[in-house]
Design a protein around this nucleic acid. Sequence first.
DNA 1: CCTGGCACTCGGCCGCAGTGAGTGCCAAGT
DNA 2: ACTTGGCACTCACTGCGGCCGAGTGCCAGG
Lengths: 339, 339
Amino acid sequence: MLEDRRLEVLRAIVEDFVLSNEPVGSKALAERHNLGVSPATVRNDMSALEEEGYITQPHTSAGRIPTDKGYRLFVDRLSGVKPLSRAERRAIQSFLEGAVDLDDVVRRSVRLLAQLTRQVAVVQYPSLSSSSVRHIEVVTLGPRRMLMVMITDTGRVEQRIIDSLTPVDDEIAGELRSALNCALAGQRLADAPEVVATLPDQARPELRPCLATMTGAVLESLVERPEERLAMAGTANLTRASVDFADSLRSILEALEEQVVLMKLIGSARETGTVTVRIGRETDVDALRTTAVVATGYGRGPFALGGMGVVGPMRMDYPWTMAAVRAVAKYVGELLGAD
Amino acid sequence: MLEDRRLEVLRAIVEDFVLSNEPVGSKALAERHNLGVSPATVRNDMSALEEEGYITQPHTSAGRIPTDKGYRLFVDRLSGVKPLSRAERRAIQSFLEGAVDLDDVVRRSVRLLAQLTRQVAVVQYPSLSSSSVRHIEVVTLGPRRMLMVMITDTGRVEQRIIDSLTPVDDEIAGELRSALNCALAGQRLADAPEVVATLPDQARPELRPCLATMTGAVLESLVERPEERLAMAGTANLTRASVDFADSLRSILEALEEQVVLMKLIGSARETGTVTVRIGRETDVDALRTTAVVATGYGRGPFALGGMGVVGPMRMDYPWTMAAVRAVAKYVGELLGAD
DNA sequence: CCTGGCACTCGGCCGCAGTGAGTGCCAAGT
DNA sequence: ACTTGGCACTCACTGCGGCCGAGTGCCAGG
């Protein structure tokens, strides 16, 4: 019970601080939340909480603010996930339903998420590793340049410009196309590499060098996908939590432009079915040490299609943000994966 | 000559202010630039320039800063376009050459431009209206959902999710595919709409409703392209010119997330062959009244493929920025359009 | 038309004291 | 063993007054 009240105090501090963005003092706490004890008692609890590292004071004779550790505890033990209202769910659904293609789905999701949470939203494009090849198209762009387009049955489209060592014309392109399609159509992407490898040997000799570079490109686009694409929206929201990190804003924006960094943050949440929260230094990105990342995967089945999440100040409304992220992920997952 | 010197003074003011970001006074001006006259004379000139609206003082007893009109005059009459060094040109070229597909070209361009100019860079994806259809692919995603992918000979790929009223299977998709391809392959996009319109009538009756929705989608993706895509990078650079518009930063970021706004800004420059500069209120966007936009089209021939440019504080190094924008546009144009 | 001199303005930068929210500690109460 | 009221103390923040100096406008003389 003593322990219980302390946690209650911590929760109150987090909630108040999230709202006001000002260090919260013992008196205000005892009043606003009906804890049933006097400010003095609260002070003792705060003292203990500070001792344990959950809260800290910006300077002597100021109120307390939560530390990383404090937020962590709050998220882990003190907050549920606010359920969204029926109206909100409907809004999400109707907003996403208007999407006309994959790109549109992703862009709508990311905008939606940014608007809902009033944070920076990030959505990974669905990954393709578990789909299979539907069709491959080869187009000549110039005397020595071709474009390869691969369509998968999940609706993903991969394209690749190829520079050929030997001249190519439409006829050659046609042959390449049919060769590739015969070999690959219907194949799962995971199996594709080995099938592709045998291709050049079976072709007409004069086609071989060309086909070789082509298959090389196919392989690349299958395997080397360190930078699957992602979409971002709501960077303007960073200025909302203005004064906090007015100075670090620059470095945060820079970090957010690094695809690799974001992929790691968002992608890592993708395999777990739940919403994960990384607070402050837990992000492992120095520029984001004053921020928190709330992310989850979307898409049914054992492997998620991709991840999505938001980046915001540590001082954020976690229950609500987690709920929003989860809800959007759910709908996007249904939209893309279900059928 | 009197007139000449006044302009010289204006140029000096702009140049100094761009460097220092502080109001520039008569004494410093007379010293740093060898105008051959005394500060007092410079003061008279400044007085006249202020009268004419080219410069202003933030408060009495402070130096002068250029007005919108002053920057305008500077750009129009006082600044050439700094040529880039050979090394810089090489750097641009080699950076762009590594691109593997259209997407990559655009993303590399935008990053490059952002890095070179240290501003926010924006690049429009190449428009497709002047290209022709190479291949159309139809994929089933679910019992009532299909994906249509259209590949053009410029390497552009358009995709579209289609919800069918009637159930579809792979066989139907195949028929649709061949019907669309027979009719459209090789057609110029501009001609496509009328060809498409006649399609449903020629098909098997049970296919018609389905084909109709499909052709509707094709038409949409051809005609209704108000929001051709664009890429952006370097938003972190906005914080560089920090104090200037720390408060307006928010609204600037918001404006930059509005695709429509950006398209207008960047797209309008696209038809002219030269680099255009919009300063302050000339942007016609209230949130951008403290910024300037430098943009141009890329791609050879009478119609540009798209536009690109940068958004930065009015206080920017125009000669250099214009040179950088022009150079990147030139290389991208060659990369995409030449062959 | 240029120039040196001169009075004037006014934003920015101290230093200062006053204020008040908030803390820590202690002794008394339950 | 907790809780509580009281009390002294700390320290960020604010407003005020005065100083400083860059920069201006004007004028009379070259």
